[in-house]
Design a protein around this nucleic acid. Structure first.
Lengths: 198, 198, 198, 198
DNA sequence: GATGAATGAGCGTTCATTCAT
DNA sequence: TATGAATGAACGCTCATTCAT
């Protein structure tokens, strides 16, 4: 305890500034995208000289990776752990929709990172790790739901997982309709059938 | 002859070069993203001096807008016009999946443009126009399907339209699973129920 | 002929500017050394924007290497090809002394390059090539002089070559006494003995 | 005890660190030259924070001047004080050759300083002072040798002094042949004639 | 229409230096 | 004495753009 607070005390000012830089970079990334991200602007947002950034991050890439960590840490998409599988999926989709509405900037950055990940191995690794947790948590829900009879055995767990993720990502590109998009998906996957067979 | 006069008739060689520049820019955009798009590289790909680009496009932005037009023209996502509404939706989802698999680069650029559109009014306008056609065509399918009893009257046409679009966009971020994602959505929306009610 | 001048005509302005940049860099190198060589100053000396340098030289190192070529091309230290070996050595040492007096800046840069060559392979290669010609030309003089009896067979050609080169380089560090240094070396190597035996 | 009080007596640990910084700077100077000398690297070599350097040396220039003093103090090139003048010259040249072979780094730094001295008055003063001792000591040898008949009266003492210095400096630029260079100079100046007259 | 030369604003980064602790 | 935080001037380099030919 004691040494924890002492250690924090020593460099807390520096750590706060570091965090402030990460958050400023995060906001700039959301506003301007990777092609418009400028260290001088990030520094100005925090109120320091731009060279001060290099006191905390050796390179721009290092700052970007810190932003990636910050973003994925914030958006930790686990499913609820109690209730029936269908309830847990409903809960997850509701939380997802709520978050997209509440923090559209966060999700805009996440989409930016998805794209960047295709050409940046360092970002790809962090994103893959982050999504791995999301995928596993969803896979658990669907697997259990199949065992408990909530879903037909023919349901491909993989496809179900990927559909939820794809819908969430797609929905985040248009936050204003994300609630109804994920709401409809919830009905389709867990509710009374929205379609008659024909 | 005929195709020579398609575009103003004069200077077809110039039109071809213009088109070559647009396509080169399109490919570079897919590979490097907006933050890695360089006029010099585009020019080099086509085999002209980089300053020659400015004879065809006054500014970089003009070239980008030409790329946007090129991309949206290529990806014209109408639904089939024959068959039952459910058949037409199935056909549309199948075509979507097929295209994402066949042209992942095209869809990567489309996602890039979605993001860029949030901060670039010129791109936003073109994208909005393009998606308006897509939305209307999907809305027709669902509206008719509700009238014909294929879907319950409670189905929100808007939500259904947006879910298809969101799923398609999300799926294009992971082309390797796009077929199963859109396949499952097809089942959920038109096929035998994948869920038991509970 | 015709196409030689035509070719020159096309880019002569550019080539002149390129050469002007090399010469400006050469002068700055002599005045400020490698640690004080600034592209902006070189550009200012020539009267162009500093970014223009990169039109001719991709990197600072490329400009430096052009300077090395310029310097070694200027200082091409062949020995005279007529006369007795001793006469040719005398002539060489006289020319050397004269050049050091006439162009102290050139030799200051040559010494700068000697030092830099120890850590820069590209410079090392050019310098080595340049000195190889110098060494061979001196070696010929001494070899022939030994055959003709001008020097005793015991004389090490290698040592004699290196002594001339070392004395010339050392003398160039103090141009004001270079004439008497190389004059004395001339006497010691070709003239009446400056020392009595004891 | 005695050596503790050699330097002011107080804070011998501080004096040791100061000396360590000077030596680290000396080594970095030999490896990277003036254009590659970085205070941060010097500090890292010694294991202190880079800002700590400024407690010992107000500016980088101060540290450099301390290095110059350190180098010239190490290389104190007096001639032997016993024996005939020719013997003393022989001894001096032998020691010179030996030192260049033994400590090539030291002499590389000395050449670096020669060059820097042309544009840095502070360094120039220290170097001039150092070489003044060297010159006087050599001048004594040659003056006495002329008086004793070892050298002809026509020999210019000045030229002889400068030739030795020039040869030594030039030889240090190529340490691998410095022994034969200075060996040959020894023969030419004190030994049996290397040349037949013609 | 096409080129090469040139520009200039601006980039990420470096590094000696200062200062509060 | 020693540190880490912060500075700011300056660096090499980039790149869209302009212009004369």
């Amino acid at each position: 305890m004691a040494h924890d607070t002492r250690r924090r005390g020593v460099s807390s000012a520096g750590q706060e500034r570091r965090q402030a830089l990460v958050e400023a970079a995060f906001h700039r990334l959301g506003e301007k995208g990777f092609e418009g991200l400028r260290l001088r602007e990030v520094a100005a947002d925090v109120g320091v000289d731009h060279s001060t950034i290099h006191h905390y991050f050796a390179t721009k890439q290092d700052l970007i990776e810190a932003v990636v960590g910050f973003v994925t840490r914030q958006f930790w998409s686990s499913t609820p752990t109690v209730g029936t599988p269908a309830d847990r999926l409903r809960g997850h989709l509701d939380v997802l929709a709520q978050r997209i509405v509440d923090e559209p900037g966060l999700h805009a950055v996440l989409r930016e990172l998805d794209l960047r990940a295709t050409r940046d191995p360092a970002i790809r690794a962090v994103i893959a790790d982050h999504e791995h947790g999301w995928r596993r948590s969803l896979a658990d829900v669907f697997s259990e739901g199949i065992l408990s009879g909530a879903w037909a055995p023919e349901l491909s767990v993989d496809a179900a997982v990927e559909l939820v993720i794809a819908a969430a990502k797609g929905a985040s590109l248009g936050p204003e309709s994300s609630a109804e998009v994920l709401g409809l998906l919830r009905v389709l996957m867990t509710g009374p059938p929205a379609v008659d067979r024909q």
